[in-house]
Design a protein around this nucleic acid. Structure first.
Length: 487
RNA sequence: GGCGUCAUGGUGUAACUGGUUAACACGCCGCCCUCUCAAGGCGGAGAGUUCGGGUUCGAUCCCCGAUGACGCUACCA
């Protein structure tokens, strides 16, 4: 279990493989590591596991960094690239070879594949048969010295079991007989994942390894190496996976899988981080209010304070878009208009919208609109009329409130009434409208609803008179007078 | 197939070392408020804790089995 020493100043890492963008599962793993490090005042390291040269690319690294920056995860050391640390892996491999924990294997990839196929066909487990393990070590060394190609395999003890105390799952144990003599170094001298993680985690002084539960089966192979190197084990903490709505592993089929895609969908970073943190983790009693109700909207400081490995769930979690949207509305509301403005501007840019008006006007509009925004997209979509004269009328809204030609005429008429008025305040605008309604013998609500659509293009908006003030008399008059031409 | 992990309403989670009318949040439904829609307030439906055994005075919780889901099963990570 976790010792006091190891949790005092932990060193943890996020070690993505740049073979794709930062996906939600990876982002959560990164978040948990970051939260853990910050909680204890430890160190968070970023390491790029790019030993698969075929599939790794610098572009993917950039994408991963962009994703991390977006959700606000900063790292203290790195990024370190495994492709630049090959000497370390070679040296570690040499130690393992020298101590008799590893041996050269001359089987070719084709041979192995063929044997595997045969084994599966015969109903036997497709495990490496260990034939090169029987070779004389000095002879093997001589063959390699002469330039023969060979991979280096770890010699797994034939008997016994390998166990560790997982911070999430408790004691986990695998029979050694179930493990095969896995490859440490490929025949081209490039390390496999199994070797490089151990060598790096050791070299970088990792105290905790917090990663996805898909690594549970790899862990005994790593534990064996720690033991062979007489090195102390880090604390392993395996985090359950995130599934799609159909409870299968999250994939493109379920929609967005890259973190940046959520940014593009108008999700605000705090919302995404908040949502992710609560997927497979709960703060327990610490997260409840005085009445015993669970609070869920947490900023990063609070998440850091609350986070602990003990709160990590044991079962996989389903990604729920509705809940993400809820967090998004909560956070958009919680932002100050000043903080929201740059995000809104980015959205305008993405939507090709260049709004008129001053910064002050934009801030005032945001303050009024943020209470009913579900996404940043709203600011370029249904809120478009607040920032530009180039907006469209929502068809359903027009049908609902402006289908009566008489009402449209009255609204145009009322527009002229406003134009002629000397005063234009919220109170005067409302008084004018209500007096006009009474005079014409129609219900004020009819004019209010109709005017709203005429002015904003939407059936949904903040209080009409506040909107009028926000947009200013000139624009209001113009749009109301144009009411007759809508339909 | 083998090995491993997990299993509480539709979803995320709670339920002190076995004793609760199984709680909270999202979503859903209704009502109130009201110029619309959100928000907010109030209320409701929805799980007897995957199933079957066992231990116990008493199991969501402990044990066994089954089932299901997921993971791993590469000279990928």
């Amino acid at each position: 279990m976790m010792s006091e020493v190891s949790s005092a100043k932990p060193r943890v890492r996020f070690a993505p493989s740049p073979t794709g963008y930062l996906h939600v599962g990876g982002a959560r793993t990164a978040l948990f590591n970051w939260l853990f490090a910050r909680h204890f005042g430890g160190t968070f390291i970023l390491r790029i596991e790019d030993t698969d040269f075929e599939r790794s690319s610098e572009e993917m690294v950039e994408g991963i960094l962009e994703g991390m920056r977006w959700i606000g995860l900063d790292w203290d050391e790195g990024p370190f690239y495994q492709s630049k640390r090959l000497d370390l892996y070679r040296a570690t491999a040499d130690r393992l070879l020298a101590s008799g924990h590893a041996y050269y294997c001359f089987c070719t990839k084709d041979e192995l594949e063929q044997r595997r196929a045969e084994a599966t066909a015969a109903g036997r487990p497709p495990k490496y048969d260990g034939r090169c393990r029987k070779l004389d070590a000095s002879e093997s060394a001589a063959r390699v010295a002469k330039g023969e190609q060979a991979a280096l395999r770890f010699a797994v003890p034939p008997d016994g079991a390998t166990a560790w105390d997982d911070a999430v799952f408790g004691k986990l144990e695998f029979q050694n007989s179930e493990l095969e003599d896995f490859v440490l170094l490929r025949s081209d001298g490039i390390p496999t994942y199994h070797l490089s993680v151990v060598a790096d985690d050791l070299d970088m002084g990792m105290t905790h390894v917090i990663r996805g539960a898909d690594h549970i089966s790899n862990t005994p192979k790593q534990v064996l190496q720690y033991q062979a190197l007489s090195a102390p084990l880090p604390v392993f903490a395996h985090v359950p996976l995130i599934l799609g709505e159909d409870k299968t592993r999250l994939s493109k089929r379920h929609g967005a899988t890259s973190v940046i895609a959520y940014k593009d969908m108008g999700i605000v970073p705090e919302a995404f981080r908040n949502f992710l943190a609560l997927l497979g983790w709960a703060p327990g009693a610490a997260g409840k209010d005085a009445e015993g109700k669970a609070r869920e909207v947490f900023g990063s400081d609070e998440l850091i304070k609350l986070f602990s490995l003990e709160g990590i769930s044991h079962s996989n979690a389903v990604f729920d878009n509705d809940k993400l949207t809820w967090f998004n509305t909560e956070w958009i509301r919680a932002y100050s208009p000043e903080k929201l403005l740059p995000l809104v501007e980015e959205e305008w840019k993405a939507a090709g919208l260049s709004p008129s008006g001053t910064r002050e006007e934009h801030l005032a509009a945001i303050a009024l609109l943020q209470l009913r925004a579900r996404s940043l997209k709203d600011f370029s979509g249904s809120f478009r009329g607040y920032f530009s004269d180039d907006f469209e009328y929502d068809a359903a809204a027009v049908t609902k409130f402006l289908s009566d030609a008489n009402v449209r005429a009255l609204i145009a008429d009322l527009g002229s009434r406003y134009d002629a008025a000397t005063e234009f305040t919220e109170a005067s605008a409302e008084a004018t409208l209500r007096a006009f309604a009474q005079e014409k013998g129609v219900k004020a609500g009819v004019l209010i609803n109709g005017s709203r659509v005429a002015i904003t293009g939407q059936a949904v908006a903040p209080s009409l008179f506040a909107v009028m003030l926000l947009l200013g008399k000139e624009r209001v008059v113009r749009r109301m007078r144009a009411a007759e031409t809508i339909a």
